[in-house]
């Protein structure tokens, strides 16, 4: 039996498109119930503070995160990146200090590994957002991309579960494999404004 993959959505539904990750994870869980997932997944409770992922990750070998990105691409653009392979953080991760008030996903993972926790394989599926201001509901292009993002997430979950470090990935048409992106989507979405 293939291993269970922990799937977590991150974001704040009161920040318009920032809530996209939560919806993607929920949609993926629905598809799994309908037998459309290549691997068994466990949907983690919605995450506001990424550090709380530590408890959701407990005992998991592989995990996937769905999160909104802000990189300057067209709204609804999907992306994929490794956060960790074989327990090693990937270079795309920020090494900067955490926030004064909480942790990003990268920080949470690095803390988890530092105390011997956290999945060995961790990937993130990004969905490019447009509006991150306070308010409810996704913008139209982002909402339209949620089903495809959920399918991509399940595909990634299957791959992450059966990962070997030399494996080549084939994500299928229309998906960007950004295994060596120039920027971490987590970071890029915030950086735009200040660059």
């Amino acid at each position: 039996m293939p291993p269970l993959v922990v799937v977590a959505g991150i974001g704040n539904p009161m920040r318009h498109d920032d809530g996209a990750g939560l919806l993607v994870a929920e949609r993926a869980a629905e598809l799994e119930v309908q037998g459309q997932a290549p691997v068994a997944i466990a949907l983690a409770p919605p995450v506001g503070d990424p550090l709380d992922l530590l408890w959701s990750w407990d005992g998991a070998e592989a995990a996937v995160i769905a999160d909104a990105t802000r990189s300057g691409s067209a709204p609804g653009t999907l992306s994929f990146a490794w956060i960790a392979r074989d327990g090693e953080c990937q270079a795309v991760l920020s090494t900067k200090a955490p926030t004064s008030h909480g942790f990003g996903v990268a920080g949470a993972y690095r803390v988890a590994r530092a105390v011997g926790r956290g999945p060995r394989q961790l990937a993130v599926v990004g969905i490019e957002g447009l509006d991150f201001s306070q308010g409810e509901g996704l913008t139209a292009p982002v909402a339209a991309a949620v089903p495809a993002a959920a399918r991509l997430l399940l595909h990634v979950a299957g791959r992450v579960a059966n990962h070997t470090s030399t494996e080549r990935w084939h994500l299928g048409q229309g998906f960007h494999d950004v295994r060596a992106p120039r920027t971490d989507p987590m970071e890029a979405r915030g950086r735009k404004k200040y660059r």
Partner: peptide, 12 residues
């Protein structure tokens, strides 16, 4: 310990 409107980052 100021609250920076949830999840802002001191990165740059």
């Amino acid at each position: 310990d100021p609250c920076i409107s949830c999840a802002a980052h001191f990165l740059d």
